Simulated assay, not measured.
Amino acid sequence: MSRAASPDVARNARPYLYGGEEAAIASALSAGQYNHGAVTEEFEQRVAAFLGVPDVVAVASGTAALHVGLLAAGVGPGHEVLVPSFTFCATVQAIVATGARPRFIEVNSGTGCVEPAEVLAALTPHTRAVLPVLYGGRAVDLTPARPTLDTRGVTVVEDAAQAFGSCQGERRVGATGVVTCFSFGPVKNLTCGLGGAIVPRTPLEADTCRRLRSLGIVESAARRAETTTYTVDGFGMRVQMSPLNAAVGLVQLDHFAEAETRRRALWRAYATALDGIDGVALVDADVDRTVPPMCAVRVLDGRRDRVFGELRNRGIGVGVHYPANHTQPAFSPWHRPLPVTERLGREIMTLPFHQHLTPRDAEHAAGELRRALVKADR
């Protein structure tokens, strides 16, 4: 390449701010409402309009969104939730937090996502929900499995932490009729600093989510300010999204078209640069319909760990997303053999990916990967 790559390639992921976030936070600070307020509600309304859905419930994190979404769908003790082992541990922890049991299932090694056939094959009489993970932002279409799931009373709760802005067909993820949970964490497609959201299916489910996020209190914050008492009618947590975080999200949403364009361009630059490199398989993000949060590859023939170490030594911020959860000590009670996932967990590696990077940075990272593969063969 004709010039050195940006030092940003040393970081696997990094938040991207557009310049108005600090002023938005200052404005929210001066308003004096930090727990829940009008800015949070504006964020909910704006996200709902962006997705084309009637309602969105904002919460403190993507993990909280999953926990609340599962509880609102009726998941609890005695139930099983089908979930890919190939995901961040937060997905599984949210299931455990409800008192339900995770039942780990395989994924497609080319996409990192579950397939309808695997879901149907794993169903048991105790299955209450299936939690597909939209790995790499790619939509998961369980339409072929839906008649069976609906007949058996199994709810689909999507872990769309990585998929804000992506599409399934002509609709945005979140607008496809299932419970959808987003994360707006530091390095997501849209960041609030920290935050998450649930897309409920019905007004009743939305009301349930709002009570769950607010300690089980029936009345809204605005209504409580006008009365001398309030009603707690069930379990709840304090997992509201602060207006400070919502203020950041509103600025980010104003610039989301730029995020879509730049992230797709960077992923395509990687795809071009990686083409023809032996021993590496690019995980298919379906980029025409996906707003990618990462670029993941499989390093084949048992070389991943050596290549990973060499790239880190060369200043390339590679990562591993993710080790298999069914092999983790915390989840050992639910272990079952998953050879595809186990192999994928040994091969997966993510390349530097964030909006500070350019296509030239992608070319540089791919070139360093090629050289690391050669060294790993010696």
Rank of each mutant, 00 (worst) to 15 (best):
P292G: 02
S220N: 12
Q355S: 08
A100K: 10
Y18P: 01
D159I: 06
T40N: 08
E347L: 09
P337W: 08
F235L: 09
A4E: 14
S183C: 05
G165I: 12
R371G: 10
E158A: 09
L120C: 09
A221Y: 12
A58F: 10
L215S: 13
L51I: 14
A366S: 15
G367K: 11
P200F: 06
A271W: 03
V307C: 08
G319T: 03
P329K: 12
E21R: 11
I95F: 11
T191I: 05
Y270I: 02
G234C: 06
D361W: 00
P352V: 08
V92K: 07
R46A: 11
M294T: 10
N313P: 00
W334Q: 08
T350E: 12
R201W: 03
R146C: 01
I105S: 02
R370P: 13
V68E: 02
L134D: 05
A49N: 06
A365P: 06
E368C: 12
Y16M: 11
A160N: 03
A122E: 01
E205I: 10
P7H: 06
N108T: 11
V39C: 06
R101D: 07
Q162A: 15
A221E: 15
V157Q: 08
P54A: 06
A257S: 13
E44L: 02
V179G: 00
V251S: 12
V92S: 06
R210S: 08
G137T: 04
L253D: 07
G112N: 15
G169I: 13
F164V: 10
Y270E: 00
M349P: 07
A324N: 14
R11N: 07
A28T: 02
T151D: 12
M237Y: 12
L29I: 07
V107C: 11
D284G: 01
G249Q: 05
T228G: 13
E106P: 05
V239H: 04
L120V: 10
L351I: 05
H335P: 05
